[in-house]
Amino acid sequence: MTLTDVAPNPRPERSIDIYRRALSWLEAQLPHGWTVSADRPRSPAAPNRLLITAPDGESVSYAITASKGVLSGDVARIAAELSDSDRGFVCAHYLSEPVRRQLDGHGLSYADATGNLNLVADRPAIWVRNRGADADPWRGPGRPSGVLTGEPSERVVRALADHVGEISVPELIKLSGASTGAAYRVVEVLFERELLTRLPRGPITDVRWPHMLRAWAADRKPCATRSFAAPNGLDELRARLASGNGDPAYAVTGIGATDYASASVLELYADDVDAFAAALDLRPITGGADVVVATPWSAAVFERMQYRDGLRCVAPSHAYADLVAGPFRHPDAAEYQLTALTADESWRRPVGRGR
């Protein structure tokens, strides 16, 4: 049985309770003969210093940082606040795997209330490590789930991928059309997964957009699709769509939205699948379809579209994500698209040019 199989105790909220829960894991893992002590500030504050003493009496001291939540961007600040000769011990109710990697990289010891633990010192020589939960067992409704699903994720991810330049979260909210709370939650997930760089309480300065799009594509739920036959063939259908005679809103995706190859099946999104099929005389079919129409999760698929041979197509970023995963998956075309998009990023708009 792993720690994540066990129902958690109530989430510690006060600094002193966070510290005590983390300390209980440390005490349980320390070798025989080693002891722990700390100063005694007035509760509910956590102690300021932690002292680890070896059986021979030699000891090492750590400055304690107790926090409900620690993000990757907080780690450099915590490390910078220590003097060159001091050691840090960070404790929190839960420390995510990216945060733990950051703490390890800065040489900071830590423990959380689920049992994730790493304590290191040269003199006296000690290394204590333990693995706790891989996910926050106290994550409540409305908190980031760590996955990129739903309309807010689609809007925020697309806005970040389609634009280049430093951007504040309020600017991102306006650009993406996502609600304030949802946008902040998605940014937190992206930050925790190290898919973007953000200054502490400041703007987003860099986005790892290929990795972000791939992560989003893998996390999101596949759209529902329906298959049709074009009675007069794809060439006639494409010509009708390109004429723009008031057809219902659509956006071509998949291979048809790239330069990879000529598409033998027209894959697209339609705002109203029934109306789209009726307007273009498409026949429902169960096998051998030459048209596949998906119902989009959000109107983001129709934003920042590109035109190819007169057809309205999803943005290059969305085409890439669709080729990575879901009903329009095509790994070879996805890698071709990624190579093209990274070689020439002119498709990414400077922040400030609007939606």
Rank of each mutant, 00 (worst) to 15 (best):
C223Q: 11
Y307M: 12
T180W: 08
P231L: 01
A300V: 11
S61A: 13
A133E: 10
D86V: 07
A125H: 13
Y184K: 10
P248W: 11
L160K: 07
D344P: 00
D122L: 13
Q306C: 03
G88H: 04
L148W: 02
D122T: 10
A249D: 14
S227K: 05
R208V: 06
S145N: 03
V6S: 05
R238F: 06
H106A: 08
I204M: 04
A121D: 09
E188M: 07
W127P: 00
M1D: 05
G181L: 14
V291C: 04
E236P: 00
T149S: 09
R240L: 13
S346L: 06
E13I: 12
R329V: 09
D290C: 02
V70Q: 03
P152Q: 06
A183D: 06
I126T: 07
D122Q: 14
E58P: 02
L196N: 08
P296E: 02
T342I: 15
V207Q: 00
N118K: 15
R312V: 11
I126M: 10
A261R: 15
A279F: 05
I52F: 05
I52G: 00
A230W: 07
P144T: 02
G202A: 11
R11E: 14
S176T: 12
V301C: 06
I204S: 02
A325C: 07
L3Y: 01
D134E: 08
R238S: 01
Y19G: 00
D84F: 11
L237M: 08
S67A: 15
L3T: 11
Y320I: 06
A178K: 09
G352C: 08
E303C: 03
R155W: 04
P47H: 08
A249W: 02
D290H: 05
L30A: 04
P98R: 01
G165R: 14
A340M: 10
S243R: 14
T114G: 01
R20S: 09
V265T: 15
Y307A: 10
G88E: 03
N130T: 01
E335R: 13
R238W: 04
K174N: 12
D274E: 13
C91I: 00
S67R: 15
I18R: 01
R42T: 14
G244N: 10
R129A: 11
L119V: 15
Y19I: 01
G177R: 09
V189K: 00
R193G: 06
D84W: 12
G140M: 04
A133L: 02
I18P: 00
A38G: 03
V157A: 13
A54L: 09
A63P: 00
A217R: 05
S262W: 04
G150P: 07
G140K: 10
V292E: 02
A121Y: 13
P210K: 09
L280Y: 10
R349C: 01
S298Y: 09
D271T: 04
P44Q: 10
R139K: 12
R329E: 13
I52Q: 02
V265A: 00
V169F: 06
